[in-house]
Design a binder for these strands. Structure first.
Length: 570
DNA sequence: GCCGTTTTCGGCCCGACTGTTTTCAGTCG
């Protein structure tokens, strides 16, 4: 048996690839989607699924049965799912890339392969240039041109690009505001994965009701920032902005706004599960209404609240709609009361110009924090810049400022966890601070788990900052034994941070949920280096909500005195 | 391949849009 267990991402990738190859072979659709569903489930599980499979417990995860558990064990023992090894002999692997091109699905790719004998991206490009693709039934010059265009833009199709929520959400809110101004617009709302606060989004979804749908769609497709109209129908249009962001607008009658908002908010898996559940009770759910199959009576709802109530669920907040147990909990009336941004009483990880990369002064940051209504505010500049008396100098500035403001300023630091797990400030200094965040910065150096465990063992450490060091779109998370870190944090009474920087969001929603389920409180902090970044709190709260966190689960919804008490009891 | 307030067999969400057709399959979300 291999000494290290395959990561969840590796297992999921193999299952997805197996699904793709089988689909190209023309396998049964439901088998293929069972593999994909299992892959998604595995990706969204915090602990190592390979260990569960070895212990015979992977089948406890929904969507994973005996057969897929066996396949996971094959990866542990032999490195690859046996069926995958076999399919790779039969189906050229590069065909999978074809399916990432716009308009190319499994059926078409299968025919390109079998009828034209094309098996490589280069071969596909040559055939398209030579006009050979259009010889296929159902393929025309226009499809051929679309393929060539996509290949020119991206010679090796890499799949849909995802935009961090921090960039997408403001753009989406601006688009909603623009549409709202049009005289034909009635209700306009954000929908899709951005409404669910997913860390990255692909398409930006907007839905609306309108007195004149065609006029609103016209307005949408001719907005100043629109570079291309990708699709346009009577109720729906897709446009691409100059910066590459794709926006979908869908317009419906006001009486079914609730149905549409629910449908277009997704997730797809949530909707599928909701609809399957409805089918079992003789109901058919679509974006236009809920149809009683027997009688044909259609129930339309102006709000999501009414729709969920009709189907027998408590209202499910968008952040929970991931087919991760929320439907069952809503049926039983056991959904959590999710934490809200306004409930944060302070920020516990922030910087000032005392750090070289800080852009706003201490006074500016504190004033901004006070105007956000915070009761306390931890200044945690990098330890690296606070040597040789600078820390004491900063304390003097804090003491002077404290005289002038109502908000409680906490003396803190973000101390670096060195490669050997020691901290780069001595204990006697750390002991004098109100709040100590310890973070790994050189993530390329390995052993993140050991370094974090060592830091947790230091009694002065209050919180671990941005645990995995990931930067969305730039570098992946460090591999950590999250379960072990949570256990140690519970033992030492320290906390883990949800870093709200939109390119970090670290802990991820999956990790944050696992922490919550283990009974560990999380801290939502912005790591702001300038005044405007204090507003990132809403992205961190988005992660916490996706992790099912109530105000109880988020440490800094408490008054500072309570946090001090919690620490003393450790 | 998974799953079960009808079921251990026989189901498995639903509709819009595109490009190609001339009534529809495939793709997409």
């Amino acid at each position: 048996m291999a000494t290290t267990l395959p990561r969840n991402g590796e297992l999921a990738d193999q299952l997805d690839l197996l699904a793709d190859l089988m689909e190209l072979e023309g396998s049964d659709y439901f088998r293929v989607s069972a593999y994909r569903r299992a892959a998604t489930r595995i990706r969204e599980t915090a602990g190592p699924v390979a260990r569960l499979a070895v212990e015979g417990r992977a089948t406890e995860l929904p969507g994973i049965g005996k057969t897929i558990e066996e396949k996971i064990v094959q990866v542990v023992e032999d490195g690859e799912i046996h069926a995958l090894t076999k399919r790779k002999q039969a189906v050229p692997e590069e065909l999978v890339l074809f399916m990432r091109l716009p308009g190319l699905g499994p059926k078409t790719v299968q025919r390109i392969w079998q009828e034209l004998g094309i098996t490589t991206v280069d071969g596909l490009r040559e055939a398209a240039e030579a006009g050979r693709l259009r010889t296929l039934q159902g393929m025309g010059a226009k499809s051929e041109e679309k393929i060539l265009e996509a290949l020119r833009a991206e010679p090796e199709p890499a799949g849909p690009r995802r935009t961090p929520l921090g960039a997408a959400l403001p753009a989406l809110e601006a688009a909603v505001a623009e549409l709202q101004e049009h005289p034909a617009a009635d209700k306009v709302s954000i929908a899709g994965s951005a409404r669910r606060m997913r860390e990255t989004v692909r398409d930006l979804d907007v839905i609306a009701t309108a007195t004149d749908p065609a006029a609103l769609l016209d307005h949408f497709t001719t907005l100043e920032w629109v570079a291309e109209v990708a699709a346009r129908g009577g109720t729906k249009a897709t446009v691409v902005a100059h910066d590459g962001l794709r926006f979908d607008l869908r317009v419906v009658p006001p009486e079914c706004f609730g149905n549409l908002l629910q449908h277009f908010t997704g997730s797809k898996q949530h909707n599928v599960a909701l609809r399957e559940d409805a089918v079992r009770r003789g109901l058919s759910v679509s974006e236009y209404g809920v149809t009683e199959v027997e009688t044909g009576v259609v129930h339309a709802f102006a709000t999501e609240e009414e729709l969920y109530a009709f189907l027998g669920y408590a209202y499910i907040p968008p952040e929970l709609r991931e087919a991760a147990g929320e439907l069952e909990a809503a049926r039983r009336g056991e959904l959590p009361e999710l934490v809200e941004t306004a409930q944060l009483r302070g920020d516990l990880h922030t910087h000032t110009t005392w750090s070289a990369d800080g852009k706003s002064t201490l006074a500016e940051m504190v004033a901004a924090a006070e105007s956000r209504g915070y009761a306390y505010y931890a200044v945690t500049d990098h330890s690296h810049y606070l040597r040789e008396g600078r820390l004491e100098a900063q304390w003097e500035e804090i003491d002077r400022l404290q005289e002038q403001v109502g908000i409680r300023i906490l003396k803190g630091v973000e101390v670096n966890i060195r490669a050997d797990g020691t901290l780069d400030l001595p204990d006697e200094v750390l002991a004098q601070l109100d709040w100590v965040v310890a973070s790994v910065h050189a993530v390329r150096e390995r052993r993140t788990t050991e370094r974090v465990l060592a830091a947790l063992d230091n009694p002065h450490v209050d919180c671990i900052g941005h645990l995995t060091g990931r930067k969305l779109g730039l570098r992946g998370p460090a591999e950590v034994d999250f379960g072990e870190i949570v256990v140690r944090a519970l033992e030492t009474g320290a906390f883990l941070e949800i870093n709200a920087q939109p390119n970090r969001l670290d802990l991820s929603d999956v990790h944050a949920r696992a922490a919550r389920e283990a009974g560990l409180k999380v801290v939502v902090s912005t790591d702001a280096h300038e005044v405007a970044s204090l507003g990132f709190a809403r992205f961190g709260i988005g992660v916490a909500r996706r992790a099912w966190c109530t105000p109880e689960d988020v440490l800094n919804t408490r008054p500072w005195e309570q946090i001090v008490e919690l620490r003393q009891s450790r």
